[in-house]
Nucleic acid binder design. Sequence first.
RNA 1: GCCCCCAUCGUCUAGGGGUUAGGACACAGGAUUUUCGAUCCUGCAACAGGGGUUCGAAUCCCCUUGGGGGUGCCA
Length: 506
Amino acid sequence: MASVRVRFAPSPTGFVHIGSLRTALYNYLFARRNNGVFVLRIEDTDRTRYVEGATENLIRVLNWAGLVPDEGPEQEGPYGPYFQSQRTEIYHRYAQELIESGRAYYAFDTPEELESMRSGKLPQSASSTRYNFLIRDSMCNSLSLSHRDVERMLADGMPYVVRLKMPADRIFNVEDIIRGHVEFDSKEIDDQVLIKSDGYPTYHLANVVDDHLMQISHVIRGEEWLSSVPKHLYLYECFSWQAPKMAHLPLIFNPDGTKMSKRDITSLADLPEGKVDPDVESYIRAGFERDAILNAIALLGWNPGDGHEQEVFSVTELIESFGLERVNKSAAIFDLQKLRWLNKEHLGRMDEGDLLERLKPGLAIKGWDRFSDDYYTRVIGLLKSRLSFVNDFFEYGAYFFQDPSEYEEKGLKKRWKAQSANLMLEFCQEIDKLKSFNAGAIEEALRQVAERHDVGGGQIIHPVRLAVSGFSVGPGLFDLLEVLGKERVIKRLKKAVEVIPALLQQ
RNA sequence: GCCCCCAUCGUCUAGGGGUUAGGACACAGGAUUUUCGAUCCUGCAACAGGGGUUCGAAUCCCCUUGGGGGUGCCA
């Protein structure tokens, strides 16, 4: 089997689109699954849209996602440079070859003339509104002009582009891995510009030349490229090169079915109804886990199928089960709810030590960094299944690091009864006597007090939770108390008995 | 306009001639007499429409409708 080499070939526009990340992910997964090579190539041939820092940003996001290329701007590779803007001589060489063999030609038409042609205003252009076989002879190019005129115009430095001379009577057959057989009639295809007047190539020329030179075996990219495949196929043919296999991925949409587009918002909550943010970094900033994001987008258009109903995947598991054959044809809507759920699942499954590492910066900021790793681990054990986001830890678990400063009002009203204070005090006395302050012993003590007063356990459990944590919800009480430790529990219970009745008076 | 792609619960999807059309998110209800945002259980909910082909179509074919992409000296 020929070796697998795939590429992710984004143009640096300033931010990484969620759809681009998925394309990168699928390329990466495919490469890893097939012991192949994952190449990153920067398609920066549009100088008019150059965005400062966009490439650095792109690479940073890819690295964050763990989709680290085997070859690319940051990795040595035998097929560089990996910036198309640094490969212009190469493209010119191949464009020249096409011109010499009569498959491409110089064109001198001005933007204004092209616009007139497209709008059908040019007198001689009634036959077509696109630059193709019907009209090329009446335009200003090396096909319609005399050889001498062309030489002179070139010598005079007249701006020109190089266009591909698309044959009029061909059917191009595409065998797409995802879509199957697709046919295109060359009559529908115009004479694509290959080299722009600024000397840079268009995507079409550059991607064919580079994919060939870089020995790309499979082109995995978005569906928006499907209709330009015949142009690419024709170029491969002109050069007598073998075209790589192709797989065109379905698009990803907003919840309302519209295209995802960048807008200026400061948080995901500010998104207009039915919209979602296309910028990957927004999700990173919002606190989503890398694995959850990757898991979510992997599932947009792909599934393990056939009896496999797994939803939560690590990247390793994705690599093991990924295959292009199971990629869907139809576009998918990006679902924030599912992302949230996946984030929670990933957090819940995370190793406690790993979670602690994620938490450490936040703990430091909060000033809660003077506890032992063992203590943190126990707290994480109690809390991790309840976290939707890492940062929920600091809210849900605050009382493990500092005394509660207030008590949840609704909980107080519901749970704190007239006899609560007395029960608390008696419970204090009981646990004070305990030699081993563990969940089992604590529960036994509490049940005893409840029995003595002929009340249900809940009559003590709920007020204690409130007193000790300030919250009406949380982990199982006895585990919680054990982790907190006798001293702090008693201190907080006593304080609550003093403070709460007054609060309830108000 | 023209070309191309797509079409199963609200969403992501399984299923590719015979299924009570399965799962997941979301939503709703219940359980857990230790709460809940945790956990478990249950429920709600779909084959876009019309023609064929066939003993039998969600599945195959055609048309319509709807959605999307392309039609650039953008990628």
